[in-house]
Design a protein around this nucleic acid. Structure first.
Lengths: 339, 339
DNA sequence: CATAGTCCTGCATAGGTATTCAAGTTAGCT
DNA sequence: AGCTAACTTGAATACCTATGCAGGACTATG
């Protein structure tokens, strides 16, 4: 009873016939780049519009041999899946999409936690020319898998790879951490605590922590690391860290949390303890996720240039040459209320 | 000097040769569904693994005639682009991805604000079988465009379409708004204000506002609408609405903001005015975006079941029949601190 | 042993575009 | 007018897989 909804595709042959030219001419007229007389192109464009013709990307890509598409895998937390993604990953995804659009590339996004059929293989299956891997570093299995992928010759770029000698892009963690230290010291803090981790797989966190501690000491402040349990950076961990800090009665008037998610927990814990931010303790985060505006006080944080980040990632997988390198995205201090 | 990195693709013919069978047999062995002896399948799988063979999706899709892919367009704010997306859209995207994965579908995501080459046309160009449109309703040009798309025979589903008689899915706005009214009245509020809009294109907001006002009055409370400027639902608008409310000296002990983003502005404005939440005024939002946990107090809100939302959207574009309908996603009240 | 039936595999082809190669046309120049 | 060069177009084909169809091998049954 149901009439078949799929109208047969309009092909370039039909357009050609209507325009009174050959199929290759249609192809050339529409791809635009080729040498085609303006009159002919006009005819073809009109015929195409009249027939409602659209290039069949399936065929075009097969023939062309490439797709103009860039796959982005957002590694999710093992349990949570696509519903529990760090807002920073989404912000970064925005930067990637913007950069890809600048270059006329499409973006195929996969939010995945467990390995399965859909997990990667975009490049091998000819669906994309490059692969960008972002997301939580806490999913070891996923990172192991994508490390393997990257060790083949495929163009893969990682945001903050936790291991291997692969191309990866990240915020300029050291510069950001130094900015945080300087900001706190300038505002009179003398006893600083860095809440973070030096252990794998949080390589980025280690960079931030080390640079913060070094710069703080350089500036004459005392500075210690309060180590969180490695693997993931969640609000609860920030909360627990402050619990520990207060229990130990360590002197502290300034805290640097190596990522905003931790900082959110810090705010909560400090307020639970009746401490005022920034009066009693100043706080700086890292990542500048938008939700940082909502806390009370709003979170002062280090903001990476995500447009630049997107560009570097896209460039890394679009470029031809085998140039393994680590690229740093510039950061700035985003002063809001907490420090 | 650079050796060409692109190794020529391994084709099914090469696998066939190595396995001592024909190309069609390879195809059948790998697609799995067909009738192939176990011994032959084994041989083929081994040969494929040895050669590092992957199906060329470009060719497979051309031959097959479909792609197993679902395009999702996130409509962005005209100026902001991919970097200024409502967190709710991302949460919804998570639900869509999860639902698509359940069905073995891939998701092609496009974050776009301006109409250009990449703006849609996924289905027409044979890149996807269905199109899901989500995102801000404030981008009129974009919605106009996608309304046109939807009026052709293509399978398109919208989240909260502002116009037309198209398939669309949304939260159960009326049920949610009633829950909000009941919650506030149960807690003793008698003078309620709804901050929202009844005007197009925010059809969802109108549903929420109307249902809230009706239910509140049903319960014997006074309830009025404080209309915001239509188009977009931003924090600043919530802030301005409270300004206006306070200036008018309207009695008010409970506020329902038709979306969380507005509610964030409400919190800020109330606190600026020295009013305590929930002591002086109770507040309920709508959407349950994760950032609502961070405000002080955390935002009580209406939470739609986004897994269900994803499933409905995916189902709407995967299904065959032309069944224009509006589907409602169940909601629940997420009681946090603000009411 | 013959025949029907079942199961598996190979042959041939379609799917729609981009590109190579060659041919046709027109313009430019002496 | 004659020749060359530049420009434009068409014919044929490759890209790689999935599938309709037919045929071959093998089993079971009479």
């Amino acid at each position: 009873m149901d009439a078949p909804r799929k109208a047969a595709r309009v092909t370039s042959f039909e357009v050609a016939e209507r325009a009174g030219v050959s199929q290759p001419t249609v192809s050339r007229a529409l791809s635009g780049s080729s040498v085609i007389s303006e009159a002919t192109r006009e005819k073809v464009l009109i015929a195409a519009k009249e027939l409602g013709y659209f290039i069949d990307e399936r065929a075009a890509r097969l023939r062309r041999g490439h797709t103009g598409t860039l796959a982005t895998v957002v590694i999710c937390k093992p349990g949570g899946g696509a519903r529990d993604v760090n807002p920073f990953s989404y912000a970064l995804l925005g930067g990637i999409c913007a950069a890809a659009a600048e270059r006329g590339l499409e973006v195929l996004v996969s939010l995945q936690a467990e390995e399965d059929k859909l997990f990667g293989h975009f490049v091998e299956r000819g669906q994309a020319e490059g692969l960008i891997v972002i997301g939580t570093t806490a999913n070891h299995a996923a990172w192991d898998y994508f490390r393997t992928i990257g060790e083949t010759t495929e163009p893969v770029a990682y945001w903050g790879s936790p291991l291997g000698d692969l191309d990866w892009v990240s915020s300029d963690n050291e510069a950001g951490a130094r900015l945080a230290a300087e900001h706190l010291v300038e505002r009179g803090c003398t006893n600083l605590i860095c809440i973070g981790s030096r252990g794998s797989p949080q390589r980025q966190f280690a960079e931030r922590a080390n640079a913060f501690l070094a710069r703080a000491k350089e500036l004459g402040a005392s500075a210690d690391l309060l180590e969180i349990e490695p693997g993931g950076a969640r609000r609860e961990q920030g909360w627990l860290a402050v619990e520990e800090l207060l229990a130990s009665e360590t002197a502290c008037d300034g805290i640097f949390a190596v990522c905003d998610a931790l900082a959110f927990g810090v705010i909560e814990a400090l307020q639970d303890a009746g401490l005022a931010i920034p009066k009693d303790i100043r706080l700086v985060g890292f990542d500048a996720i938008p939700a940082g505006e909502l806390t009370n006080p709003p979170l002062t944080t280090i903001e990476p240039d995500l447009d630049q980040a997107g560009r570097l990632l896209v460039e890394a997988v679009s470029g031809k040459g085998p140039h393994p390198s680590v690229r740093r995205v510039p950061v700035r201090l985003l002063a809001r209320g907490s420090a």
